[in-house]
Amino acid sequence: MTSYPGGPGVSGTPGAPTRGIAGGKFWAGAAAAALVTALSALVATVILRVFDLMPLSPNWLPETTVAVRFAILGFIGALVAAGLLQLLLLTTPGGDSFFGWIIGLITLAMAVVPFAYDAVMGDRIATSLVHLAIGLPILGLLPGVADRAAVWK
Score class of each variant (00 low, 15 high):
L48E: 01
T65G: 15
T37S: 04
A111D: 03
G83C: 05
H131P: 02
V80A: 13
P143D: 04
T64V: 12
A78I: 05
V46A: 14
L73Y: 00
T2C: 08
T18Y: 12
F115D: 00
G100R: 14
L139M: 14
L90C: 10
A28C: 07
A119M: 10
V66T: 14
V120Y: 06
W60I: 11
G140Y: 07
L84R: 02
P62W: 03
D147Y: 09
T18V: 06
L105E: 04
L89T: 02
L129D: 04
L84P: 01
R148S: 12
N59I: 00
P62E: 11
G23A: 14
A30K: 02
N59E: 15
S128K: 05
G83M: 07
L142V: 13
A150Q: 06
L141P: 02
I125A: 09
D123E: 13
S11T: 14
R148H: 14
P17Q: 09
P114L: 06
A82I: 03
G100H: 08
S40M: 01
A82P: 03
A133W: 07
A146G: 05
P143T: 10
A31E: 04
T107M: 07
T2S: 07
G77H: 01
T37C: 04
A82K: 02
G6Y: 01
G83W: 08
P93N: 12
L56N: 06
I102P: 02
W152Q: 11
P58V: 00
L61Q: 04
V130Q: 00
S128F: 11
S40W: 02
G7A: 02
V36P: 00
R124I: 07
M54S: 12
G20Q: 12
G83L: 05
W60F: 14
A34L: 07
P62I: 14
M121S: 15
P137T: 04
G74A: 07
A28P: 00
Y117G: 09
L105W: 11
T45F: 03
S3H: 10
A150W: 00
D118Q: 15
V113Q: 11
I138H: 03
S11K: 08
I103D: 04
L42S: 01
N59V: 08
P93A: 11
L56W: 03
I21Y: 03
A109N: 13
V46M: 10
S11W: 08
A133D: 05
P14V: 13
V80F: 13
I102C: 12
G77Q: 04
I21V: 15
W152L: 13
L84V: 15
K153W: 05
I72M: 09
T13F: 09
W152T: 05
A16W: 01
G94M: 01
D96L: 11
K25W: 06
P17R: 05
G95S: 10
